[in-house]
């Protein structure tokens, strides 16, 4: 128990410290690397409360895919840090406001602010039964039954984002020569190979 508490404080401290470093550090590449560290320690915290499935998904999705692409983009950008700092005071009120709204939402959701009724009423209703079965199965049981429509809707949201990204980047340029693999593969032998009898010292 003592070891678990110690582990919790270590991981929680590293999450907070690296999250601060994400904002504070001057080099954007360091920011992304600290973000990855924060993700990792958050995953460790999930493991501590016995949510190993969510911990692994956090690492696979955020660390393994999203943060790689972040890093990919940030490394290629030529970011001028001093130029970024200039607008700091201008954007500070907006940033603080967004932070406050998010904090208030969490507090309302937990029922700390407002009455019990403002807290999400059905929160405990279909929560996965942890303990008797492993939590992958527990999540699967409620995700595809109780929350089926929400699950589908979140899929649609991602699809919209994907189509948006494609629309933004797709452009058809005239005069581009492309490899058409299917055409290449369907060519018969007599169209591709010509056997020539080359006379010696004369060439083709």
């Amino acid at each position: 128990m003592l070891l678990q508490a110690l582990a919790f404080y270590v991981f929680a401290f590293v999450v907070m410290a690296s999250a601060t470093m994400v904002v504070v550090s001057r080099n954007p590449v360091y920011s992304v690397l600290f973000l990855i560290l924060a993700f990792f320690n958050a995953a460790a915290l999930f493991i501590l409360i016995g949510a190993e499935f969510i911990a692994m998904i956090l690492i696979i999705v955020y660390v393994g895919a999203v943060a790689v692409l972040f890093l990919f983009v940030v490394m290629m950008l030529d970011i001028n840090v001093t130029q970024l700092r200039e607008g700091f005071l201008k954007y500070l009120p907006i940033g603080a406001l967004i932070g406050l709204v998010l904090l208030a939402e969490i507090l309302f959701g937990l029922g700390v602010l407002g009455s019990e009724s403002t807290a999400m009423a059905g929160l405990g209703k279909a929560a996965p039964q942890v303990g008797a079965i492993d939590n992958t199965r527990a999540i699967g049981r409620v995700l595809y039954t109780q929350y089926f429509y929400l699950f589908q809707v979140s899929g649609v949201v991602l699809l919209v984002a994907m189509i948006g990204a494609i629309v933004l980047t797709l452009r058809s340029r005239p005069g581009v020569r492309r490899q058409r693999v299917a055409e290449q593969l369907y060519r018969p032998k007599d169209q591709t190979i010509e056997v020539v009898k080359v006379p010696t010292r004369e060439g083709v």
Binding site: F53, M56, I59, G64, L71, F72
Partner: peptide
């Protein structure tokens, strides 16, 4: 219990060393 996911997660981290 999540052995396969663990392996998948770790193998996706290998790219960081390279990048």
């Amino acid at each position: 219990n999540v052995g396969i996911l663990y392996l998948f997660a770790i193998s996706s981290l290998g790219v960081y060393g390279i990048i």
